[in-house]
């Protein structure tokens, strides 16, 4: 016992090193593939006149930042991205909340519906994107077919520069929903059903129960999905390829991540420094935005008195 206590306090070198050996493989992986690139991008964004073939640069400074902030394409990219985030997030979260609430009602088919809503999450993005491309098709797409049924004119979703942004939003909202629904559903299932019973005995309508009881009790989860989805919406990029094979008509869907990609791959010689600077600005924007949401959430919790728990 005495010996054991002594060993615990001052274990032999081998024992002390052991836990770190277990951590080593993972740490090496993270260091090479995550930490090094992050640090490198940060440094790269400050390197002036960087030549990617030789690795030479003239010095450190804000030249890259200055040049992209003067670039009208970059300003446009920020505007498009913000517009996308501000439209997609409220719709995606509100629709998901409605569907999650419906799924949470104990009906016979709720298991089937849960599977159905989970399906988009596990299907290939490219396959789904191509499907949407057909659905958006001007002449034979199902969306225009339905619009025509209601007597509305066909919309050239993919080629009309006034419409393709909305096609992108619809596709973005749709692809955001499954995961959001799953998270909200698990939040809903954590609400004690007795609150509903109590409200029902008092005669509350289901609409009032939803807004006065469900939504407030679910607000931590709602904020979580808003933050997660905001981060992912800021990074809108993948969605552009299956639908438009690029940044839309005349660069009108030129998003921030597409700008980074373009600086990196689309130019000769590639402007690595500018790409890195744009990436750091994107990082900063996401940071500010999520920070604001976090503060709202905390303020929200404080007025609900949960802080003192």
């Amino acid at each position: 016992m005495n010996l054991y206590a002594k060993n615990l306090k001052n274990p032999p070198f081998k024992k002390r090193i052991e836990p770190f050996l277990y951590l080593l493989p993972f740490t090496i992986g993270v260091a090479i593939f995550t930490l090094y690139p992050i640090v490198n991008v940060f440094i790269l964004s400050f390197k002036e006149n960087y030549r990617h073939l030789t690795g030479k640069y003239s010095g450190f400074g804000f030249a890259n930042y200055r040049s992209i902030l003067k670039d009208p394409y970059f300003i446009q990219a920020i505007q498009i991205t913000f517009k996308y985030v501000l439209i997609v997030i409220p719709f995606a979260v509100a629709l998901s909340l409605m569907i999650a609430n419906l799924l949470n009602q104990k009906t016979k088919l709720s298991g089937l519906f849960q599977t159905m809503y989970f399906l988009p999450l596990i299907t290939s993005v490219t396959a789904v994107g191509l499907t949407w491309k057909y659905m958006f098709n001007y002449r034979s797409g199902i969306i225009n077919f339905i619009l025509n049924l209601f007597g509305l004119n066909s919309v050239n979703w993919l080629q009309d520069p006034n419409a393709n942004f909305w096609a992108l939003c619809i596709y973005g909202i749709w692809s955001m929903m499954p995961f959001t629904i799953i998270l909200l559903l698990s939040g809903l299932q954590n609400i004690d059903p007795r609150y509903y019973t109590a409200a029902k005995v008092d005669g509350a309508s289901s609409l009032r129960i939803f807004f006065r009881i469900t939504v407030p009790l679910l607000s931590p989860t709602i904020w979580l999905v808003v933050i997660i989805n905001t981060i992912s919406a800021f990074k809108v990029f993948n969605e552009l390829f299956p639908l438009f094979a690029g940044p839309g008509i005349g660069h009108n869907l030129y998003t921030l991540v597409y700008y980074i990609y373009h600086q990196f791959r689309g130019l000769t010689p590639p402007k690595y420094g500018r790409a890195a600077a744009a990436a750091i600005i994107l990082f900063g924007l996401i940071l500010i935005f999520t920070r604001i949401q976090f503060l709202i959430q905390r303020w929200n919790r404080e007025i609900h008195g949960e802080k003192s728990k």
Binding site: R194, P216, E306
Partner: peptide, 8 residues
């Protein structure tokens, strides 16, 4: 368990 609404 009283079922008081925790957010009110």
């Amino acid at each position: 368990n009283y079922s008081l609404y925790p957010h009110m």
